[in-house]
Structure formats: C-alpha cells, structure tokens
Design a protein around this nucleic acid. Structure first.
Lengths: 131, 131
DNA sequence: CCGTATCCAAAAGGATACTG
DNA sequence: CAGTATCCTTTTGGATACGG
C-alpha cells in the first residue's frame, strides 16, 4: 500500500509554506514583534539608553531569562546596541539603534489602531461570549 | 522564616504586569497579530469572501485545527463574519468585516517597514552570527 | 463539505541556583 | 551588576479519527 497519502501531501505543503515564510520579510518582522517582550523592551528604550537592571524594573514581570533572550535577539537584529563599561561592578547599557528607532512609528501605528478600535473588538467579544 | 521573599515579589510584579496587559489595547492587538496564522488568513480574505476549503488551500500548510481556531478567534473579535448556507453539502463563507478591513492598512504598514528594512536586519544578523 | 474531539510531541517560558 | 545553567510546567500546535 502507498504510504504517500494525505499526510505526505500535508507535509509537503508545510515545507512549501515554511520556505515561503523564510522569504517573507513581513512575516519575519511579525514573528519578532510577536515575541512577548519585544515591544515592551522597545518602548522601555524609546526615550534613551537603559541599564539591564533598569529594564528589569521598567518591563515589569519579565524574568531574567526572557529579558536577556529578548535583548540578545534585538541586538542580533541590529535594533539595539549593547555597551559594556568595564568598571566595578560591570555596567551594561542598552540603546536603540537608528534602525530600532525607525521601528517605533510602526509600533505606534499598531497602537493607534488598537486605541481606536479595541473598544469595538471588546464589544464584539462580549456579544460573542454572551451568546 | 518568612516565605515571602524574592519569589513572592516576582509573582506580585507578574500579577501587576498581567493587569497592565489586560488594560493595554495595543498589547491585546499584538497578541492577536502574533497568532501564527492570523495575518495570513487576513490577507487571504483581503480581496473577497472565501470558503473554508479555499482558505485551507490558500493558506498553505495550515492544519484544520489551526484554521478553525484562527477563524473562530477572528469571528469572536468581530474581524470576520461566518455565513452558513444550509444546502447539501453545507457551504460556509468567511469575509472581512469593515473592522477587519480597517486592520489591513496596519498590516500593510508593518509590511512596508519590513520590505524597507529587513535587508538591514538580515545583514545585522549575518554580521552577528559570523562573529 | 465543514468541522469537532482526542492524543501526543515540541517549544516557550518561569523558578531557582550559581558565576565572574 | 549582569548575566548563565538547569529544571520543570504550561502552552502550542500537528496528526488522526470521527460526526452532522
């Protein structure tokens, strides 16, 4: 019997989809933005450089693991810089790059839509759930 | 000894954070957009209503479970409508609501930034990984 | 044709402890 | 201060089978 059935077809479609994603810049950005803490860190850095401990406080509720992981990701993507000042104790500052700063308006656009329409969404949810 | 230590403090901060998120429309929207398939489905519906099976094909690689789950979520949020035509076999059409359509420009803004800057991001990544 | 229900594997993410 | 390493729970999401 042929093992190549619906399962195989789906797997193939999935590979095609993954390849498509790899080539889709918008999707990559969305994946970054969808990381739970990225936008919060971006906003925390919006008005100037911040130290690690400052971010830890400003972005309330974030674990060390997630903060570090998020910062590393942003640094890798060229959105933030990490500056180590070798004094005692060590001092590390994070700041937005111009590229990172250029992303802020996009986040603001999302925020603007949200502020303008999330009321309708909330109402729709309430109506949906009531029924 | 007091069991109320760093752990408790963190937990409290986390509750505060969660409460903050519950009140933050932008964050809620971001959570929606971050759902892996939401934007793809939104785009698939951008130029007109589509049937379930059509979406299944247009959004390559999606499983039935995820497609249904995504559509239910969008319907709940008032972003898409679900219209059942009770013939044999059943026919179900999905379409964007005006609210859902109004979200398209936002997605487009994200896409625009991505198209304009993802090259730099990719370069930054390459540089970071090479080192 | 359009789903729902169940199971299960993989990944995300938090708590804790430890280091330079 | 600024992390790293480990463990472990929770969530996510695909595969499969079945129902209206």
């Amino acid at each position: 019997m042929p093992t190549r059935t619906a399962a195989e077809q789906r797997a193939e479609a999935r590979r095609a989809y993954d390849a498509y994603l790899a080539d889709c810049p918008a999707r990559q950005l969305l994946d970054r933005l969808s990381d739970k803490w990225v936008t919060l860190v971006l906003n925390a850095l919006a008005d100037g450089p911040r130290r690690y401990a400052e971010l830890s406080r400003k972005v309330a509720g974030v674990s060390q693991k997630m903060l570090t992981q998020t910062l590393r990701g942003l640094e890798r993507d060229g959105l933030v810089t990490r500056t180590v000042t070798p004094c005692v104790p060590v001092r590390v500052d994070y700041a937005l790059t111009p590229l990172g700063a250029s992303l802020l308006p996009v986040v603001a656009a999302v925020k603007a839509w949200a502020d303008g329409h999330m009321g309708e969404v909330a109402a729709a949810r309430a109506a949906y759930d009531a029924f």
